[in-house]
Amino acid sequence: MIDVTDPAFWPDFLEVLGKGTLETLWMTSVAMLITIVIGLPLGILLVGTEEGGFLGASTRRGRILNQVLGFIVNLGRSVPFIVLMIALIPFTRWLVGSFIGTGPAIVPLTVVAIPFFARVVEIAVKEVDAGLFETADSLGATRWQLVRRVVLPQALPSIVLGVATTATSIINFSAMVGVVGGGGLGNVALTYGLHRYSWAHIIAVIVILFVLVQLIQWGCNALARRLDRSRGRSRALPAHRPPDPAAV
């Protein structure tokens, strides 16, 4: 049983939580980073290779690519995380040499986050006005120029919001990897909360996770607002604007 009046309790409490928080942050950020690197192009490819998509998907190659990508993404999304985690053990062991610990936990976290994020990107890219694709064509732009200068800037605010959602999911799942010795706050809740009945630890874990998620959401919201110029920022507007009914 725990005893909060024990002088040894608090230093240990803080150390455990501090370590757990850092581990969670580490796992989440690395997994998020890899997810963006792989998921972003994947999402753009998913939309671009659709029937009539901006990457010229009327070709056979495009159609096949689209179907393969769609299949992988749906497969990744339909398997429950706990099952995926176990199923990935051989792969993780092959890739990083072990499946226990914070580092190896990043593997299943990334694998589960990529399809999720790819769908997020897909939705964001679909919101880009199709007229802009035609415009880029009329300017004789390459596909890469179109993606880099039109699709990305326009989809970025939504993608950033999607990063918040995805990071939150990764944090949730990272708690679950604690079950298989993945470390992080989930492991703290498991070893101290469940095995040693420490409510103090459970509550602290909940509070820390809540604050983390809140900070991520807040940060991403602010960034997305900065990136989105489509609604205009009243502060940036000149005080006198010529009346123009067409400017609505």
């Binding site: 007229g131 415009t135 300017l139 732009a141 120029q145 326009q154 970025l156 989105d228 110029r229």
Partner: peptide, 28 residues
């Protein structure tokens, strides 16, 4: 590149400045 086109709804990239929109054509 030898044929320019303008559109009814302007089709400017909303998250890029006027100059950046023009620069896009030059990058192309």
């Amino acid at each position: 590149h030898r044929i320019g086109m303008v559109f009814q709804h302007f089709n400017l990239v909303g998250n890029r400045t006027a100059a950046q929109n023009v620069e896009f054509a030059l990058e192309a």
